[in-house]
């Protein structure tokens, strides 16, 4: 029986047709995914080559900013005796700020990167979406690696800190980068529809930063603020990352499902809006597709 010319006679024939059709589609999809992976990988390498060209420390300089910020805040928290769960000032600052930087870097890479393609979108098959994805992925990789390796030099300097749990860190930084990517897509779409909203997007980012858990934990926060702050998905990620460094850190008030749902929602809405704008001739701005 030829599945493509003969009329199917029963359920097995339908299944056979579906499988052969799916197999063809799966092969095409796999090929397209591999193409996208090649492009994103090449874009990351391209960014590395151009960003650190004149920098003698190369990629290592990417770790300087989080290291400096965490150091300053560690001394600030420990010297002021700030209320921090388990008095783990080092883990508190590392967990909070690395998650924030991952989110912020992915968001800025998506939101600002759409306007800085340097001619790469002239290459067939390369879209601004590839560029945004490459930047979000790079943010994830940098801060994930930073979290994994930061414990070793600190232990040399006498600090009691262990490398974080790899699986939890993978999830938290992955979701932080995903949230940044989704928020960047949404911001791009909103600014294209309502250009006057641009400055408010920047102000909103500050509000997200203040409530992201870098300065306060949910367990030590005042009961007036905590019911509202807990709606920020980043504070859940920050608390979980602190837990990844120190298993005794309290996480009974947070959940990874909440930021996961936020990430999916933001990315979905951002993609749908940007696709709708790309298909609408009335909007002649930057199109990701």
């Amino acid at each position: 029986m030829n599945a493509f010319t003969d009329r199917p006679r029963g359920p097995t024939d339908w299944i056979f047709m579906a499988l052969t059709g799916l197999a063809a589609d799966a092969a095409d999809t796999a090929r397209a995914v591999m193409d996208d992976i090649f492009i994103i990988r090449a874009l990351i390498l391209r960014t590395l080559k151009t960003r650190y060209r004149k920098n003698p420390f190369g990629m290592i300089s990417e770790f300087v900013r989080p290291a400096c910020v965490c150091t300053v805040h560690y001394f600030y928290f420990s010297l002021t005796g700030r209320a921090v769960p388990c008095q783990q000032y080092l883990i508190f600052t590392l967990g909070g700020f690395t998650v924030w930087f991952c989110f912020s870097s992915a968001y800025l890479g998506t939101y600002q990167g759409a306007g800085r393609s340097s001619g790469v979108t002239n290459i067939p098959g390369v879209t601004l979406m590839h560029l945004c994805l490459s930047r979000a992925l790079w943010s994830f990789m940098v801060y994930f690696v930073f979290a994994l390796i930061v414990a070793y030099p600190l232990r040399q300097w006498g600090q009691e800190i262990n490398p974080p749990d790899v699986l939890i860190s993978l999830m938290t930084y992955g979701m932080a980068a995903g949230l940044g990517f989704g928020y960047g897509l949404l911001a791009l779409a909103i600014v294209e529809i309502f250009p006057a909203v641009g400055p408010f997007i920047k102000m909103f980012r500050w509000a997200v930063f203040i409530t992201s858990g870098v300065y306060e934990s949910l367990t030590t926060m005042s009961r007036v603020m905590s019911p509202y702050i807990q709606y920020n998905p980043l504070i859940h990620l920050a608390e979980y990352e602190r837990y990844a460094f120190y298993p005794g850190y309290p996480i009974y008030l947070v959940s990874l499902w909440y930021p996961f749902c936020w990430m999916l929602g933001l990315v979905f809405v951002g993609l749908v809006l940007n696709r709708a704008l790309a298909n609408n001739a009335a909007f002649r701005g930057v199109h990701l597709f």
């Binding site: 391209r46 080559k49 151009t50 060209r53 340097s118 001619g119 790469v120 002239n122 290459i123």
Partner: peptide, 10 residues
């Protein structure tokens, strides 16, 4: 022969 696709910094 148009706007270019090579990165000027490389």
């Amino acid at each position: 022969n148009s706007s270019g696709y090579l990165h000027a910094g490389m």
